[in-house]
Design a protein around this nucleic acid. Structure first.
Lengths: 294, 294
DNA sequence: ATGAAAGCGCTAACAC
DNA sequence: GTGTTAGCGCTTTCAT
């Protein structure tokens, strides 16, 4: 059984890949990490996990540490649209692949879900139910996911402009339940005309549910709600959450595969790899109340 | 910036710790891994993650691989009561600490929750509500958690023997929702007198909820249900789950600390480190239906 | 105190 | 094809 340190010293290969994630506690991430880990392991790589707790400073420290440990590749799920620490990897440092959250510059390969498609389906669904005044409550502006989803909501709503459809878009500080609660409270009091909310992710949707309950509004009778990600267990909530399902495990697997390709010297397509999404209609969406219907 | 391979070759220290878990997708594990990772990282160790998908063969392979990579320590959350691959670590191989799931031999240090206390509180709670015919539906026999919880349920029920309290205990193949569904279906048809179920973990409890719904039984009106672990989001189910809360994050942190202690040469107490649990009463428990009350 | 050198275990290059 | 050897970059020891 050869000594990996000696081999590594000689071959300059560590057999290690770093996986940088914003928060293991967010249930969407588990299948992504699992898929990546399994794929990487099958290819003979070990997975060094680093949780940044959504903190850019910790992200930078984590990347530095992973580089110091001579990881051959990095799977990064924490990138912001402009992230000096991440962007630098495009020039120097180990091969890196981004999952879900991409860079504005597109300097690094990205594996992401087709959020625009899913969100457009959500808006169509709500409009077909009779909703005219929509809201989009989402996370920080500096994430590509947020930007993509917000743009898709705006454009989809705009396509129904002649039917009197409008949408108010609000960004929060993060993607937590507490952020969703804050956003929901503010929206509900400022825009009582809104009968349907498209949340930037399922955590925000959960917070919206809390805000509705506080305001004495029922979901879906008074306000409809669509989440994003279809994370585990949202199908068992009351009401079961209508949400845009992303292929969680596949995102991890494909990201790992793209990274393995890069490590094997393959040229990587400059275009993001986009995986399909699907609107899963459950109990949190319904026609708007008659009194509010336009 | 020194080369870790060269340093490692010279010092015989890799700066790596392996973390072996049964299934990242089970939400209880996220905080445990997070706590361990953060603690280990703060001490300068990198975390190599290995998910065994609850497969003993993969567990053995994972341990072998982690040893081959010269991990200085292992945090293992997958141990069965007799696990040759794990037991061997007590003799040869890197320092290892078990979390939650211990060995019958006690050969390796264990950090676990005080399940017996939590489960006893659950039984007392149910008996106080008026339940007399209880059931305990849990996971495989070859896990120490299962054994501890089952024993505690039996003993607690026995303490109320004179009040006419009895309990039927059933073991399933795993700790999944599907296992809970199977166990619940079988129990409900075989023991219609049962008015309260103590589940071996929250996943099994979710399966029981499904089985009740299939059987046209309402929770908690017809049958009360207590889970175990208080994993994220079970407070938002319908009904909100009454469950035994374990200090998830602390389990990971303490396990890491014990491991760090061992690596620093400290003698480790032969007794398991037991962290407190607490019964969290929510909506899934209520008095038994009058027709069934004994 | 400061500096030089040996050697950790492997692989790749090269000589035979 | 088979065997030998140099050297990867560090730490530690030993000599000055």
């Amino acid at each position: 059984m050869p000594d990996p340190a000696a081999r590594s010293l000689r071959t300059r290969r560590s057999g290690l890949v770093g996986v940088v994630i914003p928060d293991l506690t967010n249930p969407v991430l588990a299948p992504i990490v699992q898929g990546a880990e399994e794929t990487l392991r099958a290819a003979g790589f070990g997975c060094l996990l680093a949780d940044t707790d959504n903190d850019p400073a910790r992200e930078e420290a984590a990347i530095a540490e992973l580089e110091a440990r001579r990881c051959e590749g990095l799977v990064i799920a924490t990138a912001r649209r402009r992230s000096p620490a991440v962007e630098r990897l495009a020039k120097h440092g180990p091969a890196a692949v981004l999952v879900t959250r991409g860079l504005d510059t597109g300097a690094l390969p990205l594996v992401a879900a087709d959020d625009a498609h899913g969100v457009a389906a959500a808006v169509r669904h709500l409009v077909a139910l009779g909703h005219r005044h929509l809201a989009h409550l989402t996370g920080p502006r500096d994430l590509s996911t947020t930007a993509r989803r917000a743009r898709a909501v705006r454009e989809s709503a705009k396509a129904f402009e002649r039917s009197g459809v409008d949408v108010v878009v609000r960004h929060g500080a993060g993607f937590t339940i507490a952020d969703g609660r804050r956003l929901g409270r503010a929206l509900l009091s400022a825009h009582p005309e809104v009968t349907a909310i498209v949340a930037g992710n399922d955590m925000i949707a959960l917070g919206c549910l809390d805000a509705m309950a506080e305001a004495g509004l029922r979901c879906p009778e008074d306000v409809s709600l669509v989440g994003h990600n279809d994370m585990p267990f949202v199908d068992r909530l009351e009401p079961a959450l209508t949400t845009v399902a992303i292929p969680q495990r596949a995102l991890g697997v494909r990201a790992a595969e793209v990274l393995l390709g890069r490590l094997a010297g393959e040229a990587v397509a400059p275009e993001p790899l986009v995986l399909p999404t699907e609107l899963v209609v459950r109990g949190s969406t319904a026609p708007p109340p008659a009194a509010r219907r336009s």
